[in-house]
C-alpha cells in the first residue's frame, strides 16, 4: 500500500470579512396589503417586519452574490485570486445545473476555485460556514467564500395572508480564512426530517412537467401559480423558539462560554417574535446586542445572518472582535449554531 502525504491545513479558521447586498426596491407593507386582507399593524405585531427588499430582473442570484462577495473580499483585505472555495447556499436559484457558485467564482476572478451550491434552507449560512472551516483546517483551501443568497419574492404566494409579508431578497457573504487561534466555535447542527412538512415548497417542480392542472395551485383569477414556500406557523414557532434555544445553549457550551461572555446574538431573521422569545428563553443579558434586521429586510433565509452581521458592523452596533452567537434554522427542518468572532 502506498503511503500518502497528509494534507496540511491551518490550525483554526475565522471570518475575515463580511459583505451584503440588498436589492434597490424597498417594499413597504402597504404594497403587500394590495393582495391580502390584513393591516400594517397586524403584520408588524406578528413579525416585526416594516419593509423588505425585492429584486428586479437584473438583481439575479448571481449578481447579488457577486456584489456581496466583492464587499466581503475587500473587507477581508485579500484578493479574489486567493480564494480557493466558493460555497453558495440558496433555495431560490431556478437553474439547478450548473451550480451558480461556479459562475460567481468565475466572475469574481478567482483562480478556478472549487465552487458548489448547498441546500440547507435558513440554516444554509451555518452549514456553509462549517464546511468552509473544515476545508481550511483540512488544507484544501486557504480562503473560502460563503454566500447566502435568496430571491424569495419569486417563491412567495402574495395571496396567502400568513406568508405574503414574510419574505425578502438579498445576498450576504463572508470570507473565511486561516487563524492561529479558534475564532469559529464547534458547530451544533442537525436535521429533523420527521418535521419536513412544516416548511416546504407548495408543489414539486415535476408536477408542472406532468401538466396535471388539477393538481397545481391556482390564483384568484384561475391562473396556474408558481410554487411558493408555506409553513405551519404555530409548529414552526414552537420549534424555532424552544428547541432552537436548546441548540443555541449547546453551541455556547461547546465553545466553552456563557451568555455573559457574548457581545452579539445573530439569530436567523425569520420573525421578530421568534427573536424576542429566543432572547427570553435563553435569558440573554441586557448587554448582548440582538440583530433585528428582519424589520427592514424581511426573512431572507440563508442570506439573513450575514446580512444582519454586515448591518450591525456597518451601524456600529457591533464591532470587529466581538463574540457573536449565530444560529440558523428552517426548512428540513435543519439547524446550525456556532459562536464566532466578528470580522
Amino acid at each position: 500500500m502506498a503511503k500518502l502525504k497528509p494534507s496540511k491545513g491551518a490550525p483554526y479558521a475565522r471570518i475575515l470579512g463580511v459583505g451584503g447586498y440588498r436589492p434597490t426596491r424597498v417594499v413597504p407593507n402597504e404594497v403587500i396589503l394590495e393582495k391580502i386582507d390584513s393591516s400594517d399593524e397586524w403584520i408588524r405585531s406578528r413579525s416585526g417586519i416594516e419593509t423588505r427588499h425585492w429584486a428586479n430582473d437584473e438583481e439575479t442570484v448571481a449578481a447579488m452574490s457577486i456584489e456581496a462577495s466583492g464587499k466581503a473580499i475587500a473587507d477581508a483585505g485579500i484578493s479574489a485570486e486567493q480564494i480557493g472555495g466558493v460555497i453558495v447556499s440558496t433555495v431560490s436559484n431556478f437553474r439547478q445545473t450548473p451550480a451558480v457558485a461556479t459562475e460567481i467564482a468565475d466572475k469574481l476572478g478567482t483562480n478556478k476555485a472549487a465552487a458548489f451550491d448547498i441546500s440547507a434552507g435558513c440554516a444554509g449560512f451555518g452549514y456553509g460556514l462549517t464546511l468552509a472551516k473544515g476545508m481550511i483546517v483540512e488544507g484544501s483551501a486557504e480562503y473560502v467564500l460563503v454566500i447566502g443568497v435568496e430571491r424569495l419574492s419569486d417563491l412567495t404566494d402574495l395571496e396567502d395572508r400568513a406568508t405574503a409579508f414574510l419574505f425578502g431578497d438579498g445576498a450576504g457573504a463572508v470570507v473565511v480564512g486561516p487563524s492561529q487561534e479558534p475564532h469559529i466555535g464547534p458547530t451544533v447542527w442537525g436535521s429533523e426530517g420527521d418535521k419536513s412538512e412544516t416548511i416546504k415548497q407548495t408543489v414539486p417542480w415535476d408536477q408542472y412537467r406532468i401538466g396535471d392542472v388539477a393538481k397545481l395551485p391556482l390564483d384568484s383569477e384561475g391562473n396556474v401559480k408558481f410554487p411558493a414556500i408555506t409553513q405551519e406557523g404555530q409548529a414552526v414557532f414552537r420549534w424555532a423558539v424552544f428547541e432552537m434555544a436548546k441548540v443555541a445553549q449547546q453551541a455556547l457550551d461547546a465553545a466553552g462560554i456563557t451568555p455573559d461572555d457574548l457581545d452579539v446574538f445573530i439569530p436567523h431573521q425569520a420573525n421578530e417574535r421568534i427573536i424576542d422569545s429566543m432572547v427570553k428563553t435563553l435569558k440573554l443579558p441586557e448587554h448582548v446586542t440582538v440583530a433585528r434586521d428582519v424589520r427592514t429586510t424581511g426573512n431572507t433565509s440563508a442570506a439573513s445572518i450575514p446580512l444582519a452581521m454586515e448591518r450591525l458592523l456597518a451601524t456600529g452596533e457591533a464591532k470587529s472582535g466581538d463574540t457573536a452567537l449565530v444560529i440558523g434554522f428552517g426548512a428540513g427542518l435543519v439547524y446550525a449554531a456556532t459562536v464566532v468572532t466578528l470580522p
Binding site: 405585531s45 406578528r46 405551519e232 406557523g233 404555530q234 409548529a235 414557532f237 414552537r238 423558539v241 424552544f242 417574535r273 422569545s277
Partner: peptide, 22 residues
C-alpha cells in the same frame, strides 16, 4: 394571538406536566 398561544401552551406543559401536541 396564535404565536403567544404557543408560548402559553409551552408554559402550561411545564407547569402541569402535560404534553399538548401542535
Amino acid at each position: 394571538d396564535s404565536l403567544s398561544m404557543v408560548e402559553v401552551v409551552v408554559a402550561a406543559e411545564e407547569r402541569f406536566d402535560v404534553k399538548i401536541p401542535d
